[in-house]
Design a binder for these strands. Structure first.
Lengths: 195, 195, 195, 195
DNA sequence: ACATACGGGACCTCCCGTTGCT
DNA sequence: AGCAACGGGAGGTCCCGTATGT
């Protein structure tokens, strides 16, 4: 148990640090200091080095982000309302974190896409799973499969971009605005289907 | 002239390297090797260090990206068509660069937003200027000012997000799809205005 | 043992180099080359950087200098003779070292007293301990405590100054002369006490 | 005129910076910033580089220190009183400078005696001139020439050492004490001559 | 007499990965 | 599982001297 706790604490801390400062600005030294885990466990748990840590951190962070979205979708009356709720909750959580905890994937993806095939693949897969998951919920609301995948990609892209703009501007507005726009757009599409 | 060339070559090379590998993975060593500029000129042209270089690189890269968009808008028959053309040209240029030359701002912004106030401010300003420029073109097409600013933010956010997804997936699709969607959405809005 | 040897070798070499060239002219590069210790151990043994190394080097060098003086005091027939013997042995050792190995404290003290509080404090403490130690021996010879502290300060100051003059002039004379003068002065004071 | 002013300002600033931080910690950059002199004049006035600047700075600083001592000797009723006045004035001036402006020679001498023959020679000469000047005043008070040279060396050595201890301890005491001791010692010698 | 730029090298710090020893 | 130490290399910064134009 104590071994898995060390590993988990390392991964969770890594996820947080990667979101805040990115991959290259996060050193093992910072990680062990922040997490309070022992130096000696690094190689034991991550023989593949920092790259292996990042792969694990992205998978964990991605899984959390995914269930975070599903959580708010479940609490909304409809899928359009779920979209807006999701964007708004992310916006307020971002501000609460001091505009520090952005997407667990995007920063690392941009930093390593041309340098680490393993990380690039992990990020690409995480992005894909996110879109598939969103598409599934859209289909459940009645959107045709092909259209659902398109919309999922569009919404997810906007989500990522709005997250960047929000952090840069230190403002919830990009995320809030995007949430509202897609709520409206989706409601329109669903109304058109009903007729 | 040769004096200004050194500084300019450093900035242009920095812009390229920052897009490819980000801020922290770009070293002065790499920069002087790639640009063929002398080590000794670093402190002379950028006494503020790497941070000052990055500020300059982002401003230059941003200006280029901005005029790039305007270039394709001018060559399109309408603003909706301009949006699509812009997204498509960026998509094909991205693939041509081996999926390496992404946004000149986004990567550095994500890496430094919580570490360098100067860079964060530079990125925030660049994002803001980009949106204002886009909003201006939307207003020229007949969109109401307030709505133009909303749309500009939405489109620009989607642009940034689609750029990330495209690089991660090594696919033009996110950008192409976003271009088409916003072309349609904008055409709809303009049609509604005519009535 | 081999672990402690690396640290110790670094400190001893640093002491030697600081005496010879001072703090700022002694680089880590020179130190690892001279001591044959690994680069990588620098941060491990001295996470506080060069400043921490210097603190350790001064403490070690100071302790050696202190026991060196006590050594010659023990071998002399009287405290006045001890003073002279000490000054003379230091003078000849200095010449033997090619006028290179001066005081382990003075040079670093002068270089860093206005820049590094930690080093300044270390040097001040070392000077103070030296004077207390000398005062103790003077009291043991019969000098009154208050006078012993005065004389210790005076003798130690002259010792430091003579060391500088000796190195600058490449001559033992300042140290030899000072030794003789204080032998006489001290003998006079002790004679006065006997009456 | 303006050319000689630039040179002089550089030398005076260098003297101050060398006293404060030593030779190696004083860079050209710091010097031009502190002195407000033009970068371009460096090579014109000091083609021999930093070493030439230091030689000039030591000569100037030394000359000032020498006339400073003579100044206070002239204002004292006797040579013994002059000694004490000199030490006391130096002590108070040192404290007033924030314990920063020590001897214009000692720090540079210790740093460069084994590295720069030109500077070592300059320092040695300055020390020698100081002692000769002091010896001359002692002879004028009636001390025999040979004894005057001995005393001058002793007093000057103590002066230098006390200056170091005073800066390290941030206390006027070492200088004040040394002044009083030599006042008494000298008065004794002069009394013995009268008999 | 001064300014701007070049030019290479060295500075200290810190990094990440590995190796034996508990 | 964990620890202390090794090991080399690269990080960004800054230095000093020189060269070319005013």
């Amino acid at each position: 148990m104590s071994t898995s706790t060390t590993r988990e604490r390392m991964i969770e801390t890594a996820d947080r640090l990667f979101r805040r400062h990115g991959y290259h600005a996060t050193s093992w030294r910072t990680l062990v200091e922040e997490s309070g885990t022992p130096w000696g466990s690094i190689q034991h748990h991550f023989p593949g080095g920092k790259e292996e840590l990042a792969v694990a951190a992205i998978e964990v962070g991605h899984a959390q982000a995914l269930s975070y979205r599903e959580h708010w979708f479940e609490r909304a009356d409809s899928v359009p309302a779920g979209i807006r709720l999701w964007f708004e909750k992310v916006a307020s959580a971002l501000e609460r974190s001091g505009w520090e905890l952005g997407c667990p994937i995007a920063t690392v993806a941009l930093e390593t896409v041309n340098a680490s095939p393993a990380l690039a693949e992990t990020c690409a897969h995480a992005f894909d799973v996110s879109q598939r998951s969103l598409a599934k919920d859209l289909r459940a609301a009645g959107i045709a499969p092909a259209r659902a995948r398109e919309l999922a990609m569009l919404i997810f892209a906007t989500f990522e971009g709005a997250l960047i703009l929000a952090r840069a501007a230190r403002s919830q507005k990009p995320l809030q605005l995007a949430g509202k726009q897609f709520e409206a757009l989706l409601a329109d599409e669903l109304r058109a289907l009903d007729r």
